[in-house]
Design a protein around this nucleic acid. Sequence first.
DNA 1: AGTCGTTTTCCATATCGTGGAAAAGAGGTC
DNA 2: GACCTCTTTTCCACGATATGGAAAACGACT
Lengths: 250, 250
Amino acid sequence: MSVQSVERALDVLEALAEHGGEAGLSEIAARTGLPYGTIHRLLQTLLVRGYVRQESDRRYALGGGLVRLGGVAGGMVGVWARPYLSKLVELSGETANLAVLEGDFVVYVAQVPSPRRLRMFAEVGRRVLPHSTAVGKALLAGRPPAEAVAVFERTGMPRRTPNTIVDRPAMLTELQAVRGRGYALDLGEEELGVHCLAVPVWDGDRVVAALSVSGPAERIDALDRDDLAESMRKIAADFGNELGPVTGGG
Amino acid sequence: MSVQSVERALDVLEALAEHGGEAGLSEIAARTGLPYGTIHRLLQTLLVRGYVRQESDRRYALGGGLVRLGGVAGGMVGVWARPYLSKLVELSGETANLAVLEGDFVVYVAQVPSPRRLRMFAEVGRRVLPHSTAVGKALLAGRPPAEAVAVFERTGMPRRTPNTIVDRPAMLTELQAVRGRGYALDLGEEELGVHCLAVPVWDGDRVVAALSVSGPAERIDALDRDDLAESMRKIAADFGNELGPVTGGG
DNA sequence: AGTCGTTTTCCATATCGTGGAAAAGAGGTC
DNA sequence: GACCTCTTTTCCACGATATGGAAAACGACT
């Protein structure tokens, strides 16, 4: 039903990824529980094909082939997300976005615009800072606070509007609140007059993306937040399941 | 020496990627030459692990697991590039960059700054349009002209400075010239007073990235372009080999 | 030089993957 | 609505293929 050696090769790659993309043979052995000879042979195969590199100190690392495959697969995420984003637009009447955390930035990877005349438009691919956006807060709320703090330290939380939260303790409280209620808000913190509501997308036990709706302040404020968030959470759950239904994670 | 079923699983994934990330069983069979039963079993294995998805029409597509692995591996590209970028800095005395094409944008993925007081600084992760940058031209020159035209159509080639090439025929001539001499220039086309020189990085027969040096116009112009480009090409070749030494491509 | 922790190689064994062909399923046509 | 075709999925006996323990080679550190 399932090919053992392929599964094991995947175990090896995942072990490598969990070690930060680089590990020695014995570290992989410890993690996977596979015998040395087997791991070595699998690594050799992946090495020849460019999916694993060998550093000068004989340690192994994920290779360039994965960047290529990941790029193609990543380009499709926007396509997969489309139906969910459309459902969000239908539900809220506002522009829906999918965003992920990339380094210290939030990157918009897909969008379905609202059918209304006055609508949000956020160029796909745009990078914004997490502290002033609903998607950013939803993404960071799903990570350990220490990590969020590190991000804020590096980005400096610059003020974008009078509403931007620029105070670190206040932001940590805000993230706490986001975790509590399951959705994040942006009330004109990135751009005056623009409000957003975002929910995290879980792949197993990790937050891998965020879904948001955004539009003119008055229209967004007119919606029932808890009600909308509840529906969004369901959509996000469906999308998350589609991303990695069986992906245990590790 | 090498594990057959793992190699075949990789063949399947690559075939899928070459089909644009989505293909039916028989299309994969045609491409790989493997028997149906075998492919189906391999796909089943990849499916369970989340490295392949099955669409509602029973076709197969690359899965979310690859996005995760690709992300980890991609994060390391900057690390791998460091020594080469350092060599470039040593060679030219100017800031060296590594950039890739992502959609219609050029994205800087790594940088080693010049040791000089007055130096270029381009935030890693920044996205710029290809038509006004040396890296962008180097990247597009390595693609079919039709693809470059499509990019220009979508981006509109906005004027960034008086030197920006905003005329499509002129740009196509420029790309031709880049192909001819093997390196691309940016003479204050993105930012006045800043000049750059970029060379493509080949992984097998594909241009996957571009290396550049950039700095104040006077300093860059004082360098021997052909000489510098020649050295850069060597470095780019070494880097390309490291990225995918055996990666035939398909 | 000597020791330890790795990584790499080897080889007999039986496990595990193979692939042909048949069954099941989907879609299209008349 | 029934027939036909194309695609996907399942099945199973066979033997090629991966397995993994243990020994050898390697390299780093004392």
